[in-house]
């Protein structure tokens, strides 16, 4: 890669290597802990707040070849007012689109709080030369993206070239500057918990503001186990550097119940600081509809049908 300037946030490679080498996880113990966290149940009052919080943490996403201006407009409208009949339901955190659609999305969100995130670096595979990844990212930022979701170089990672993974993220962070950088590990490709931890630490050390589980393009998306590995990495990184990084879980979180389990885990393990869209996000398309149903159900006591809520 040659000439990369180390930014303020990124951590020296030698200390990254040290942390990466100390990635030791016992999978059976981890699974047991995660399933025991799933047995917590929360109060009804807290539940409504939790559901609204989930909405506010959602990155409403469309990442398809068939995406059009019309589709983006629909989605942004839903992002701003997820339930037009209930103003107490907050806006989602962001909409997430391909770089070529950032301009349109940006235009539609106008003055709302909804941010525009772009997936870049040749999402989802990332299998292009670095120059292309930089260009892809620069294009998204120039189009007005508030947040950038990149993918790590899994080829390099699985070949053991951790340095390359790190250098690429550092370079992309250089392009981003103050634009929020979310780095996708694609845990379904990494397979083992130790790999997830290594990739988390490398990404954090390279200056990522968020680490994110998945692209949503694999059959294996997020899991609470993967999220647990990532949150432990974030906490250890914080205790080393004082930097609080965020986590985004995406792919496979279909219902409100599952999302609440994530929040319970974040609350138990990280504390309430992380119960905040600045530090925790859900990448979602179908999740939001279930959360909206559950909110209405809590308020009315009746189970809801999908057609009460607008398409996104």
């Amino acid at each position: 890669m040659g000439n990369i300037k180390t930014s303020d946030v990124s951590i020296e490679w030698s200390s990254v290597l040290e942390m990466v080498h100390e990635s030791r996880i016992d999978s059976v113990g981890l699974n047991e802990r995660v399933s025991s966290l799933a047995t917590r149940s929360i109060k009804k009052d807290s539940k409504l707040e939790a559901l609204n919080m989930i909405v506010s943490m959602c990155d409403l996403t469309t990442l398809e070849g068939e995406d059009t201006e019309g589709k983006i407009s629909q989605m942004v409208a839903k992002a701003i007012k997820p339930n037009p009949l209930d103003n107490s339901v907050p806006s989602v955190a962001a909409v997430c689109v391909y770089p070529s659609l950032v301009g349109i999305a940006k235009e539609k969100v106008q003055n709302s709080n909804v941010k525009v995130a772009a997936v870049s670096s040749y999402f989802p595979s990332g299998q292009v030369p670095m120059e292309s990844k930089l260009l892809d990212t620069k294009y998204a930022i120039d189009s007005g993206a508030d947040e950038i979701d990149i993918v790590i170089n899994r080829k390099a990672f699985l070949e053991g070239d951790y340095r390359k993974v790190y250098d690429e993220i550092v370079a992309l962070k250089e392009v981003c500057q103050d634009v929020h950088l979310k780095t996708i590990l694609e845990v379904g490709d990494l397979k083992t918990y130790e790999n997830i931890r290594k990739a988390s630490l490398i990404s954090l050390a390279a200056g990522s503001d968020f680490i994110k589980t998945s692209t949503g393009k694999l059959s294996v998306g997020s899991s609470r186990q993967a999220c647990y590995v990532m949150l432990k990495s974030v906490l250890d990184f914080e205790s080393e550097t004082g930097i609080k990084a965020g986590i985004k879980v995406a792919g496979g979180i279909r219902d409100a119940k599952d999302a609440i389990r994530y929040l319970v885990m974040i609350n138990e393990e990280m504390g309430s600081d992380w119960l905040n869209p600045e530090l925790f996000r859900f990448g979602a398309s179908s999740l939001l509809d279930d959360v909206l149903k559950q909110i209405k159900k809590l308020k009315t006591g009746a189970y809801q049908a999908g057609y009460y809520f607008p398409r996104g």
Binding site: S41, I42, K43, S46, M53, S272, N276
Partner: peptide, 10 residues
Amino acid sequence: MIDWQYSESI
């Protein structure tokens, strides 16, 4: 920020 409480689930 919500006051995160678990229900008494008896």
